[in-house]
Structures are given as C-alpha cells and as structure tokens.
C-alpha cells in the first residue's frame, strides 16, 4: 500500500512538472505565433530550394525520393529540432547562477525533473509546429505519401527527443567544468544538422558518408523519424527503433554517470 501510494505521488509530481510547460506555453501567445511563423518560413524556403533542384534535374525521383517525400521528410526533421527547448542553456544557467541548489532541494530526481519539463515543452511545441508546417507542406505538395507512417514516426520521434534530451543535458552539465558552454552547443547543433540530415536527407549524401552517418546517434535523432514517416517499411521500423534504443541506453548511462560526478562537485555556500 505504502509503495503504491508513493509511486502514485511520484507520478503526480512528475505529471505536474510535465503539465507546467504546457500551461506556460499556452499563456504566451507570442511564442505560438512565432513558432508558426518560423516553421512556415523554413518550409517555404525549403520548398523553393527543392522545387528548383527537382526542376533542374528534370526528374521526379532523386535517390528514391520525390519532391513530396523530400518536403514531408524535411518537415519531420525540422519538427525534431524546432520543438525542443534550450535545456543545455537552462542547466548551464542554473549552475552559473547557483539556482541549481533549489532544484536539488526538491524531493525529485535531477534527471527526471528536467525530463518531465522537457517533455512538456516538446509536446506543446511539436503540436503547434506540426500543424503549422504540415499545413504549408500540404498546400505546396499535397498530403503525406503514406499515412501508415504516422504511428511509427511518432514512436521514433519520442525516442529521438529522448536522445536529444541526453545530449542537451550532457552539454549543460559541462558548465560544472567550463565557464561557458556556448561553443559546445553550437558545435553539437551543427554536427547534428549535418550528420543528422536536417537540410538534406542522408539518401542524397555520398554513399560512404551516408553509411557512417546512419549508424551515429545524430541520424537516430533527425533522420530516422522523417524517413520512417515517408517510407514506413517494417524492416526499416525495426532497425530504426533498435538503433534508437541502443543509443538511448548508451547516452542515458553517460548522462547518469556525468550527473552523479557533477553533483558530487557541487559546493553550496550560505543559506
């Protein structure tokens, strides 16, 4: 009885942390409008670029993808990137200002505390971005090529945000050792963009680079959900989820290890 109650209490606590960003985002109408504008802008620019490319190539199919596949893929890739909050910055700021002391005083696990809030932000932003970006892409090239890709893509998206959470948290925790983490953030972001296939599906890369990039975690984060969405073959689904889960175990373990070491370094003065 005691254990059931305690589990329920914990779920209530983390549930409240998940709901909090939803309410915060709903209260900030400006954020919603900006998200819609940014997503619309990106998809519009991509449409211009890829329409020009397909027209110049004089073909409907490049590396097995049509213009419709490419734009819906790019929408899912942008969805991953534009829906995540700036967790690394948040953790780094809390370390620099010392407010991490308040976070640690709460009767909550440090990782789960941030994961719950992160998930709340992602859930809200992903819905807004999907509606805005989806409307633009639908207007430009029509409906998604395969509706049955939606469920596998949602599964892959959740795992990809889990992976991204680990990366962001690891970078944020680096503030325990370095004064400034912005260089790490930029470099991680750009490597993810390139090796994850944010602007260009990995299928368009030179074969050797595509082969290397596909097994790295960046592709599991950005490339995997979009590629599953436009081509939800059973074999692809299984290999994608297996790779994502494998990386999640590795990065989750790395996060736990680093956060334990980092929090041991923490010295709080005053009261």
């Amino acid at each position: 009885m005691q254990r059931t109650l305690s589990t329920r209490m914990l779920l209530n606590r983390y549930g409240a942390l998940f709901r909090m960003p939803l309410v915060e985002n709903l209260a900030e109408v400006g954020n919603v409008v900006s998200a819609v504008l940014v997503m619309t802008m990106f998809m519009w620019v991509f449409a211009m670029l890829w329409q020009a490319v397909f027209a110049a190539q004089g073909t409907d199919l490049i590396a097995g993808l049509t213009l419709k596949h490419t734009l819906w893929y790019l929408l899912m890739a942008e969805l991953v990137v534009l829906s995540k909050p700036l967790l690394a910055e948040e953790i780094s700021d809390s370390i620099k200002t010392g407010s991490i002391a308040y976070d640690l005083m709460r009767p909550l696990d440090f990782g789960l505390f941030h994961l719950s809030r992160y998930a709340g932000h992602v859930a809200f932003r992903a819905c807004v971005n999907l509606l805005a970006g989806g409307a633009v892409v639908w207007l430009l090239v029509g409906p998604p090529p395969a509706w049955q890709g939606l469920f596998p893509a949602v599964l892959a998206l959740m795992l990809s945000w889990g992976l991204e959470f680990c990366f962001e948290a690891l970078i944020g925790l680096a503030a325990f050792w370095t004064e400034d983490i912005s260089a790490f953030r930029w470099i991680h972001q750009k490597i993810s963009f390139i090796l994850g296939g944010l602007f260009l599906p990995l299928d368009f890369y030179p074969p050797w680079l595509a082969a290397v990039a596909r097994v790295l975690p960046f592709a599991s984060i950005i490339y995997a959900p979009g590629r599953l969405f436009v081509d939800p073959a059973a074999g692809r689904l299984l290999s994608t989820l297996a790779l994502q889960l494998g990386w999640l175990v590795v990065l989750g373990f790395a996060f736990r290890l680093l956060s334990d070491r980092a929090l041991r370094r923490l010295t709080i003065n005053g009261g």
Binding site: A183, F184, W186
Partner: peptide
C-alpha cells in the same frame, strides 16, 4: 572558445552546401 567555436560552427554549417553541390 567563443571566437573559435563560432568559426568552427560556421565551417560545419557550410558542410551542408559542400554536400549539396557535390
């Protein structure tokens, strides 16, 4: 770190266009 990081950031970003024009 910020100066060098931004330069490296731009170099990596440009890699997209290298791959694209390749």
């Amino acid at each position: 770190m910020q100066l060098g990081g931004m330069m490296l950031n731009n170099v990596i970003y440009f890699a997209f266009w290298v791959l694209f024009f390749d």
